[in-house]
Nucleic acid binder design. Structure first.
Lengths: 345, 345
DNA sequence: CTGTGTAAAGCAAACGGTTCCATGAAGGAG
DNA sequence: CTCCTTCATGGAACCGTTTGCTTTACACAG
């Protein structure tokens, strides 16, 4: 038998309300009673029943992460785990539990979100993707439940979101190469329907333009966030008559592919081709040579998302006009793959 | 205002009990009433309040994963994410939600577990590690709450657990090399306090012994589940007077280190040294050459853990004497790194 | 000695369900 | 035409907390 507030009350010779008030630190409880009740709770091993508490308070002290459908890729796994760690750490510091849910498709996801929110199992939701049109976002927005998007969506301007400034990040990455003396710089992009690909491409363009460098269309290739894309891009670039001396890749995985290809063809990095990429996965510093990468602070992204969400849950006076887009700073980590000035050759 | 069972009842002209019975598919409800109530529920957008339900049923339809303290390593992240995916998928199929929790230290973990279980927020727990002595396991065992351990513990014999047969896996890996014609085979182990290291080492020994091969102490080196360990082990092995022609490494990350080292020294894989390792992380097939690896079915491990736990929750007649250790099959994936018969040299 | 203010604690009604028990109607057996 | 079942439903208690409203008990001013 589990011990309830009534058992404690009986043993302490007070009413259940008093015990409840002791628990919540109500001011009008004498120090004496408070102490007595507390020791008895300790003695009896009392733990409050969260369900009963939630039922009356209409609050659950838990939030939910919606994972996108299983993305089998290496980076996804690393990315999500890191994000989850950030979220869980912050949430637990704020006294919130974290539920994690996922659906095989958008319909299932919507059902899950609706069930959890309307069924009062969670107080808010963190979304981990950004599709263009999204039934889940539509539902959340219209029903007014607190939620935060990790990523960014240009279709929904006024929702809470946490993201990097990917344009700026790519600008920085490209500028780094430019400042090393490179003038012919290639770009390996990701799927064009992802906003992150577009943003990074834009940043690259801005940097090139900003320095008055030539931008050839054949220096920009599209791919996936996968090694293979890098491999293919590399062989394409290296066969160009006037080939780039450096390249920016949207993802570290792409860099690994480039590296492998260059290695096979006996090219040297960074002498024959300098490389900078994004995300700074743990592997980037372990490859040979280690890859320069933009650290996007994944953990921090998750940590902040949780913070913003919980803040919103706790005071829903939704500061109209105030910031609703939180930008996590990025940081260029310069490693061997870009430490070479071509001019000296 | 959210719509409750009473609102539905009123609108349908029946009592709340009837609505509840319709919801739970009670047999003694006329088809007509059932249909009517169901359409009204649909119309009004009724979603049952999980808290109220849990309060009375003393069951939450959710389980909890306890993550060990942030292990920053690459493999951990990949491993845990894959495991979580398996757990979440299976749980959601069984209609269970998954909470994920972690603590900075054992004390915090224990507090969390206790709060969640005794506070009736979850019905059971999945533990993702196996320390030797563990206050959390002690608590769970003595309090009788349902839980499953992913991994294995020799201190606790009779608890539910899901794991691989690591001895057999290492046996298979080693035998593969032996069957290719190798006779001098090295082993790069992990931290000796981890059971998985010990088991795999044992499997290696068994295989060598079983084939009557010589086992030199200097062919066995200890390390971590990290690239660096592989790098060091490699340079140690290659400087041995009678060096191994093949090696088994406890983890793919170790293989990457070995590979990098061999590459720097211009050795060829598998001609100069054949390699097999464990865990088959997504990267193993992308390295050059691709690494032969034992796939331990991480997703499956999680999937099964969830299945076993939920089964136990639902029928706690704990089949005494029945299996309480579930073994997930492993599978040797042969790739280029071990496809070479040394005899032919 | 009565009236008033205040601190401390109790009572009872929620919160939204589930479920045991009671009840009425209908159908069949005797 | 009763009496007993069976079936479909209603009534009410309860799950463990919280909380607004009372009540009790003083202390003190008038």
């Amino acid at each position: 038998m589990t011990v309830t507030i009534k058992d404690v009350a009986k043993k302490a010779g007070v009413s259940p309300s008093t015990v409840s008030r002791v628990l919540s630190g109500h001011p009008r409880i004498s120090l004496e009673t408070s102490r007595k009740v507390k020791t008895i709770m300790e003695e009896m091993g009392y733990t409050p029943n969260m369900m009963a508490k939630s039922l009356v308070s209409k609050t659950t002290n838990s939030i939910c992460i919606i994972l996108p459908k299983p993305a089998e890729e290496l980076f996804s796994n690393l990315f999500f785990m890191e994000l989850i760690r950030g979220i869980v750490t912050q949430s637990s510091r704020s006294g919130y539990d974290v539920l994690i849910s996922s659906g095989a498709n958008e319909k299932e996801e919507l059902e899950a979100v609706s069930r959890l929110l309307k069924g009062r199992r969670v107080d808010g939701v963190i979304l981990l993707y950004s599709r263009k049109d999204d039934a889940v976002i539509d539902f959340l927005e219209s029903s007014g439940y607190p939620f935060v998007l990790v990523g960014r969506s240009d279709r929904y301007e006024d929702i809470l979101s946490v993201d990097n400034d990917n344009v700026m990040a790519a600008f920085d990455a490209t500028n780094h190469l430019i400042s090393m003396g490179h003038e012919r710089i290639g770009f390996v992009s990701g799927p064009p329907n992802l906003i992150v690909s577009r943003d990074r491409l834009e940043g690259y363009r801005k940097a090139m333009q900003n320095s008055g460098l030539e931008m050839r269309p054949e220096w920009i290739v599209e791919g996936e966030f996968l090694q293979d894309s890098g491999y293919r891009a590399m062989s394409f670039f290296m066969n160009l008559p006037n080939r780039p001396t450096a390249l920016v890749a949207v993802d570290d995985m792409v860099s690994f592919g480039v590296l492998r290809g260059l290695n096979e063809l006996k090219y040297k990095v960074p002498e024959d081709l300098a490389i900078v990429s994004f995300n700074n996965i743990p592997l980037s510093e372990l490859s040979s040579p280690p890859i320069s990468s933009i650290d996007i602070g994944i953990y921090h992204l998750g940590y902040t998302a949780s913070q913003v969400l919980i803040q919103t849950i706790q005071k829903p006076d939704n500061d109209p006009g105030y910031t609703n887009r939180f930008v996590i700073p990025h940081r260029l980590i310069v490693r061997e793959s870009s430490m070479y000035a071509p001019g000296k050759k």
